[in-house]
Amino acid sequence: MVERRKTSAKATPLQAQDKLTFLLSLVPYLMDHDRVSVTEVADHFGMKPEQIRDAVRLIGVSGIPGETASYQHEDLFDISWDDLEINDQIVLTHRVAIDDSPRFSAREAAALIAGLQYLSALPEHADRAAIASLMAKLSRGASGAPSQLTVQATETDDTLALIKDSVDAGVQLEFDYLNSRGEHERRRVDPLRIESLDADWYLRAWCHLREAVRTFRLDRISNPQITTQAITHGIDDVKLPDTLFEGSADDLIVTIDVAAAAASLLADYIPDGAVTIERDGRLQTSVRVSHYHGLKRLISSMPGVAVVLDPPDARRAVEEWAAAGAARYAESQAT
């Protein structure tokens, strides 16, 4: 029996391979820029200024063993040290060994190509030929044939295009929304960002009805309409959480028993700090749900795989839902 506690993932520091890739990428960039500020480089590479300074200091003392095999001055990179330490500017004054940017690895090219396939159905990427030529360039710019990784283009409809238009224009959007409790409501929102998880699409928006940030499933949105009214809450005004599914203080905690192999399917629902007990290929853990309407649907879609243990109300909600579904078959056979 194994007991473990789920912990939240921390931002991982750059690993040695990432740091090496960064050094090999930074050198050609600096060769193309006679003088550039640390902050500009940090912005361009999406890194902290201190990471840039560390990398430049390392480049400044690196080089090749050279003729004498002893790293003589002319065998090393050099930078203008005063410019770096006093003006926070980078000036590469001598270079060795590197002439150009590195190729992509086969896996790097494969990851980008699969990402492009996934995105190719987005409304603004109607130009399939442009995407195909971009993929061909990635293959040619890789050091090996990209491994075969393929993602079906995501299915998108007019709703997505309309929402994207409203995000771009910064105007409010109205639509009919059916929540997982089965309630229909006309919502007016400030659209912030369109997100996806595999084949499912979501809209993150400030909801004027709830006066809070909400996540809407695109397949539960009907009759969307763009308004002419400007949004009142922009993406910089609200704190948009990184995770799509966020817990709230009102959430219900439910104990479940799930096949260990299937537990990853429930990962979004397992709260941080949940205690998990593993025995004979089954896990006992807890999931967080906002109400039993969502839970009964979730558990019924994993028959024989996940079973609610506690509380009794939650068990009953699932039982009634499944029994009502089964009853329809009994009735329709009878007639």
Partner: peptide, 28 residues
């Protein structure tokens, strides 16, 4: 990790990107 490194190599070429806020956050 592979994507992150591919982007570092891409940035090595020095091409400035358009607006980084695209209104999209797709995820596989």
């Amino acid at each position: 990790g592979d994507s992150r490194r591919a982007i570092l190599k891409l940035r090595s070429l020095g091409v400035a990107t358009d607006d980084p806020v695209l209104g999209y956050a797709p995820r596989l």
